[in-house]
């Protein structure tokens, strides 16, 4: 178990966005979190790298343990946590810098200044997302000149450059067309060999295609968490069945 939560509750001011979340995410698997909009799935994802800390008025109770460390303890090093637990956002957020500087951003944050080391990291990370071949002569072009799919790949490469263990993906394909989505999904299969992936998606077919484990959330509760095949063929809870059969959502 690489991530384990017990009885996590999260409040925005007085609104309770997450209710009694208990789940265990296994290493080197793709875990999908599905549910209708507003069910708290993105909020749950942002619990794992403490991105909710950036929002005013958020309060969280319960415990979240990653690699045997309680990440909400006062001794947790927030920057180390975020290095270990990387995040890909809904819309590609490539920085308005060159392609090289985008990928080198993380390593520079972590104090690497040696040009040769940086170049190696950039090349390795871009190769890891299958961008290096096409872009190796364009590393000093602006990242904003790339297509959405390439930008999303670049954002993943930027994460790989800081050598995380866990990749959190918040609807990473929602801004992409079906062909680009398919390519990013293939990339996730590759990445799963090295990394643990937690992906939030409102696209059930996507979860069915790529996830090993799936959690179904509704109104801030984790209704059911099981093997993807079990969830999609024989769910235990009738609300899960209602959602996957398209009765609501």
């Amino acid at each position: 178990m690489i991530i384990r939560t017990s009885n996590v509750n999260l409040y925005y001011h007085t609104f309770q966005a997450l209710k009694h979340i208990d789940l265990a995410i296994k290493e080197n698997l793709i875990t999908g979190i599905i549910g209708p909009s507003g069910c708290g799935k993105s909020t749950l994802l942002r619990v794992f790298n403490r991105m909710n800390d950036l929002i005013d008025g958020v309060r969280i109770t319960g415990s979240v343990v990653i690699d045997d460390e309680d990440i909400y303890s006062p001794f947790c090093d927030l920057t180390m946590l975020r290095k270990k637990v990387g995040m890909v956002f809904q819309r590609p957020n490539a920085f308005p810098l060159s392609i090289f500087d985008n990928v080198a951003y993380g390593p520079r944050v972590w104090g690497i200044t040696d040009k040769k080391t940086l170049t190696e990291i950039v090349e390795r990370s871009l190769a890891g997302v299958d961008l290096f071949g096409g872009l190796k002569d364009k590393l000093h072009h602006s990242a904003l000149s790339l297509s959405s799919e390439q930008q999303q790949r670049l954002c993943i490469a930027r994460l790989l450059a800081v050598e995380p263990e866990i990749l959190l993906m918040d609807e990473p394909c929602s801004a992409l067309d079906p062909i680009a989505t398919g390519k990013i999904e293939e990339l996730m299969f590759d990445l799963k060999k090295t990394y643990t992936i937690v992906i939030v998606t409102h696209n059930m077919q996507q979860a069915a295609r790529i996830a090993d484990d799936v959690g179904f959330m509704l109104l801030g509760e984790l209704i059911e968490f099981d093997k993807a095949r079990k969830i999609f063929t024989n769910p235990a809870d009738e609300r899960t069945f209602g959602y996957i059969s398209g009765r609501f959502g």
Partner: peptide, 13 residues
């Protein structure tokens, strides 16, 4: 845009 800030914090900056 705030997404830049989030992207940067998410890398541990």
């Amino acid at each position: 845009p705030n997404t830049y800030r989030e992207g940067s914090y998410a890398l541990g900056a």
